[in-house]
Every structure is written in C-alpha cells, then in structure tokens.
C-alpha cells in the first residue's frame, strides 16, 4: 500500500543528523546533515554505495553510535537526549538486523539462548514466558523450534542464520527495525525467501522498517519510499515507483543504469558508473557528487544543493535535476 503524503506525526523523525568518526588526527564525515521521516507502518528503503554512511545512519538512529549533532525523534521523544534507563526501555522498541547473519550469531551459544538473549537483557525473569516467546518467533520465521533451539549456529546455512537473526530481532515485540543489508550476503533464491519473510513479519507484527541495501531492485521490492544516499548526504527521496520511473537526481539515474538486467538483448552500457566515490575524509565542496556527475558545473562546486520538492512527494538535492 502506498502511504499518503499526509502523515501527521511520523514514527521516526531524523533531523539534520551529523555523525563523524575520528581517524588519527583526521575526521571521517560519515553522515553530514541527513533529515528523513518514516511513518508508522511504512518501509523506507535506503540505498547508496559502500561507505556512503548507510550503516552509520542506521546505528545513529538506534543510538548505537551517538550523533555529533541533530535529533532523532521516535514516537515524539528525542532519543539523542536520552540516557540510562530511559534509553534502555526505548531500545526494546527498536531493533537491528545485520548483513552478515553468520557473524552476528555467537558461535558457542545455542539458538534457543541466542534468541532469548534480548528477553534476558530486558529483564524478563519468567523462564516459561521466555520459552514461549522464543518458540513463537522461531515458528513465525519458518523454523521448527523443537529442532533448532538446541543447535549451534554453524549447523545452519546463511539463509537459516538470517531467519534466526530475524527471530531474535522480533522477540521483544519491537515497533521499528533497521534492516542493514539483510540479504546482501545471500544468493538469489534465499534472498527472495528472506524478502518475502520480512514482508510477512512486517504485516503480522505491524512493524515499521528502515531497509538498507545497495541493490535498487531489492529495495524497491519492499519499500514504500526510497532514500538515495551519497557520501554522507541524501540525494533524493520519494515514493518507490515514482523515484525509479523518473529519477530527478543524476546519481539515482546512475545507480539505475548499473543494475545488471537478466536480458541478453540489453547490452550493458560501458562504464556508466565511471569512478568511485571520493574519500569521506575530504568530501568535495558544494555537491558531493560533482566529481562523478556528468551535469556538474561551477555552481555545483560552490553551493551545497538542498533537498527540494521536484514532484509531489519526491525531493532531490541537485542544482540541475533531470526533467
């Protein structure tokens, strides 16, 4: 279902978020002033090349990495201002699923304990209640609880490990999940199974998702709206169908051209994607995409483009957007 543009109070409201890392005496400008909203029940896709700051943004939203400035409002409360017990209580409502399912499971712990861990951290002391929850979420993700709880992660394939990670993220009944490249490490057939599973879980548990990936077709399959990120900034955000049909930002267009199509009659255009992103230690002045942009001019190096509405609900940060 398409979300309407009229969204009174978004569940998540990220306002001008800045996140930096120190690297020796240098600064990595990982996220440089990102603002976005996610409505309750919505899936916002976040795409961009490796190193552009997607994971950093996701982690800063969950307060796993503190922002240098900016605000993260969740259900009306400012997470960036929260500490201690208040933050811990809030963390039950938001979860994270990682890219590498195998690495994110402790190899020495049994699946039952791994999935129950968030319950223990949340202080749920009743063992029977914990067992009930663990069984419920394992069944929900398509695993047989009796067969899996006593086994170790290495006994499972990558796809099964991702199901276990999803079960673990659901066990506290969260409202919001950041999915950080949950299918990038999986092959095409398991990828399809996991994407379908995420959609099912979202409907069943009434979830709101921030879905991070670098594959645009994967993102489109599950997202109501999509945000495109480049070198720490948002380039474009808009309803999925519209954004893919009529990209306004040259970078979105470049990403679309780079997708390998399963059609032998479409010869891939040579090096549509020339060059790699510059270093986030010394990002270009003005528009950060200008060093790779075919439309770049003087103004692009002098002036930072702001997000502007180019079509209903679609915003692009570009001085010379595509028609």
């Amino acid at each position: 279902m398409m979300q309407l543009a009229v969204r009174p109070a978004p569940l998540l409201n990220v306002d001008n978020l800045v996140v930096e890392y120190g690297l020796g005496n240098k600064t990595v400008h990982a996220v440089s002033g990102v603002s976005l909203q996610v409505a309750r029940g919505e899936t916002l896709g976040l795409v961009g090349e490796s190193g552009c700051g997607k994971s950093t943004l996701g982690r800063a939203v969950l307060q796993l990495r503190r922002a240098k400035s900016g605000r993260v409002m969740f259900d009306g409360e400012d997470l960036t201002a929260m500490e201690g017990e208040a933050l811990r209580r809030m963390r039950r409502r938001v979860q994270l699923i990682f890219q590498d399912p195998i690495a994110s499971l402790n190899p020495r712990r049994r699946i039952g304990d791994i999935v129950a861990e968030p319950l223990i951290i949340a202080g749920i002391k009743d063992a029977a209640e914990r067992k009930r929850r663990v069984h419920e979420v394992l069944s929900a993700v398509g695993l047989d609880p009796d067969l899996v709880v006593g086994r170790l992660p290495h006994e499972f394939s990558g796809g099964q490990c991702q199901r276990i990670c999803i079960a673990r993220s659901l066990v506290l009944n969260p409202e919001f999940i950041v999915c950080d490249e949950p299918v990038s490490a999986l092959d095409v057939s398991i990828r399809a199974q996991i994407l379908n599973l995420l959609e099912e879980m979202k409907a069943r548990f009434g979830l709101t998702l921030l879905f991070i990936a670098h594959d645009l077709a994967v993102v489109k399959a599950v997202s109501d709206r999509v945000a495109v990120m480049y070198l720490g900034r948002l380039c474009e955000v808009g309803p999925s169908e519209q954004l893919f049909a009529r990209p306004a930002h040259p970078y979105t267009a470049l990403l679309l051209q780079a997708i390998p199509l399963p059609d032998p009659d479409v010869r891939p255009a040579e090096s549509v994607a020339a060059g790699e992103p510059p270093s986030p230690i010394a990002p270009p002045s003005g528009c950060r995409f200008r060093t790779r942009c075919p439309r770049a001019d003087q103004r692009c190096s002098a002036e930072i483009p702001e997000l502007r509405e180019v079509a209903p609900g679609q915003f692009a940060a570009c001085h010379h957007p595509l028609a």
Binding site: V188, A192, N196, A217, E241
Partner: peptide
C-alpha cells in the same frame, strides 16, 4: 525459477517474490 526469484525493477513494491521453496 532462478530467473523469477530475482527482484525486478518493473515490479510494484510489496509484490511477493516467486521464491524457490
């Protein structure tokens, strides 16, 4: 089945993918 399982850009969001079970 391998071809069908690839998400396609033309497909509308939230269309279940024909996954190989």
């Amino acid at each position: 089945a391998l071809l069908a399982a690839i998400p396609k850009l033309e497909t509308a969001p939230h269309t279940p993918l024909p996954a190989i079970s």
